[in-house]
């Protein structure tokens, strides 16, 4: 608590003031969130309210806990045995870390796209269909697959080879397939961990365009190490940094324009302008 006070409250609440008191709503609200891997505190005291149907970028130096924070938002950290989470993360007002909450249910509502495309070693069709099937979808599967692939701007490229292995697609296509797979189960939020970092610039551009389109219907939180990318696509930006114990914390969270033009923190400015470290 005292630590939280030392940090100027202004920076975060200005975002709240600018947004929250208006008509906007929040998709994810993290309060006092911290993550430990064993005894190592990877992230500490994150208070962050992510607006609905916007793209929020998380930037920061490597190792500052961006992926860790992202994983907290849909309980993927549960899968790491040593990980322990404190504080709370509210999704539609429910603390997803409450004992009564089912992580499986959470992940169905809050989808995830990973740094390296990880299609299942199945057909393209099956990759999209599988998630919906296990979640009890009983409708017209062909239609559903087509819809998801169209939303991921992949349909035209794969419509003739739906029954081929997804592993035969290019890296960019695989990543869009992973996005299609994620939106097929109709989540509220899509978490993306450096989704374009393994792709060439053209494939990256397509992913970025896709994210813009998707943000009309979904809340997107994207981790990126590429500041231009954050500036290009996001509405809000959260800047994380590490302290002397290598523990990550949220330095500044505001509208992207403000972060990149007029950051209120010195360290943010240093990082943005490349004077970091």
């Amino acid at each position: 608590m005292t630590v939280a006070l030392e940090r100027p409250a202004q920076t975060q609440s200005s975002q709240s003031a600018a947004y929250a008191n208006g008509t906007g709503s929040f998709a994810i609200e993290a309060g006092g969130m911290g993550v430990y891997y064993g005894n190592f505190c990877a992230v500490r005291d994150v208070d962050m309210r992510v607006p609905t149907n916007k793209i929020t970028a998380i930037i920061g130096p490597s190792g500052c806990g961006k992926s860790t924070v992202l994983r907290c938002f849909n309980r993927m950290n549960d899968l790491i045995n040593s990980a322990r989470i404190e504080g709370e993360v509210l999704f539609q007002g429910q603390n997803i870390y409450d004992d009564s909450v089912d992580p499986v249910e959470v992940r169905r509502r809050i989808g995830m796209v990973f740094q390296k495309a990880n299609p299942f070693p199945k057909t393209i069709y099956e990759n999209v269909a599988w998630g919906t099937r296990i979640n009890g979808f009983r409708g017209d599967m062909d239609e559903m697959v087509e819809k998801a692939l169209r939303s991921a701007a992949l349909w035209d490229e794969v419509k003739d080879k739906l029954q081929q292995s997804a592993l035969g697609l290019s890296g960019g296509q695989q990543q869009r397939l992973c996005i299609a797979r994620a939106i097929a189960v109709e989540p509220e939020i899509i978490l993306m961990d450096e989704p374009a970092s393994a792709l060439d610039p053209i494939a990256t551009l397509r992913i970025e365009d896709l994210m813009k389109e998707l943000s009309e219907k979904y809340t997107i939180i994207v981790v990126t190490h590429n500041m231009q990318q954050a500036a290009r696509i996001s509405d809000f930006t959260a800047f994380f940094s590490v302290d002397e114990y290598r523990t990550g914390n949220l330095i500044e969270f505001d509208e992207t324009e403000k972060i990149f033009t007029n950051p209120s923190q010195k360290s943010t400015e240093d990082y943005i302008t490349g004077r970091f470290g």
């Binding site: 796209v113 070693p121 599988w130 296990i134 797979r181």
Partner: peptide, 27 residues
């Protein structure tokens, strides 16, 4: 079996057994 496969499954809201049965075991 690569962990990315498990993560992909979990990320879609699959239960542990669904991930094992549909992805881990076949691989």
């Amino acid at each position: 079996v690569p962990n990315s496969l498990r993560q992909a499954g979990f990320g879609l809201g699959a239960t542990h057994w669904q991930v094992i049965w549909h992805h881990v075991l076949p691989s």
